[in-house]
Write a protein that binds this DNA or RNA. Sequence first.
DNA 1: TCCCTAATGCGACGGATGTTGCGTTAAGAT
DNA 2: ATCTTAACGCAACATCCGTCGCATTAGGGA
Lengths: 176, 176
Amino acid sequence: MRADVLAAVEAELAEHGYDGLTIDAVAARSGVHRTTLYRRWKDVSGLLVDLLAAGADDAWEPADTGSLETDLMAVNREVHAALTARPSITQAVIAASFRTAEAAEALTRFWADRYERTALVVRRAVDRGEVAADVDAHRLLLTATAPLYHQLVLLRQPMTRDEADQHARIAAASVR
Amino acid sequence: MRADVLAAVEAELAEHGYDGLTIDAVAARSGVHRTTLYRRWKDVSGLLVDLLAAGADDAWEPADTGSLETDLMAVNREVHAALTARPSITQAVIAASFRTAEAAEALTRFWADRYERTALVVRRAVDRGEVAADVDAHRLLLTATAPLYHQLVLLRQPMTRDEADQHARIAAASVR
DNA sequence: TCCCTAATGCGACGGATGTTGCGTTAAGAT
DNA sequence: ATCTTAACGCAACATCCGTCGCATTAGGGA
């Protein structure tokens, strides 16, 4: 039943976008009663938070491609894909995070987890001797990924994969 | 009267934040009737868009500090100040941009204008011979400012002015 | 001064969103 | 098989947000 509801959320999201996402529509599509949705998920943000949680991969690790630069490019391609997907659950949760504290917290927890895991690419680079041991992993990942979020989410303009790659290269170069 | 209303919006924003910003509260505080607010500004987003427009400085230009790196640092300090102000009108409009198309468009127009003006720092750097003439100004500004938006708006974590400066330096170094 | 028009104030209304009380169903334990 | 408990379905209700019709006021021109 949870799966039915989350599938309905995703479908509604694809059809009407975040601002058109309503409890009633999810109830109608999933066949689950309105009241049940309100009780178990509280509101639209709760549904999206759960959708994010359902999609979270507990075993996720950044790909090991042999160098810091290409590792960062791989990360950026994943971010790029997540933000340009249709529908983009990440974009929807970002939107929800401006409406409820729960969504905001879920998002910051999700990203904190992702950044922590992704720091592995920096440790590997240190082990390879590519960069110094005291490199600030968070700052490095921010340099690489932030331009994608800004351009795609806030500026609402397209970004090619080549541009995403380029920002990964700039980030890698910033610690050489 | 417009000034009364916008002042009330700013005050309410400071007290209750964006999600606590309601037409009724603005009406009560400003002494203007609900219906009038709905008619002239349509909704909360409209009020914020107008507040952004009222604060926009038509004569704004990036400071000329003598070098690309310090120019970018000056830009980043302005962005940093705008995002950490209490209340931050920019943050409020960003939040609103996820709810109405009008706010989203107003925001992209605002930023398009700002990026265009800020490109002056790149032209000056070209004139000084600091960088090549074919530098992508947008990409450069994205590298400099995006980490601030991502950290302060999306990750919702603090950023020191030193860190903001550092991202300006990284951006400047990326075109040397 | 008088009139015309546009903007504002005001109360009432409609619709959507979220809540509550109660009956029903499903699952697990003994 | 029966009992217990928790979750769900259902309909009615409450609340909030936005709209509408109408009266009033302010401003500008003949």
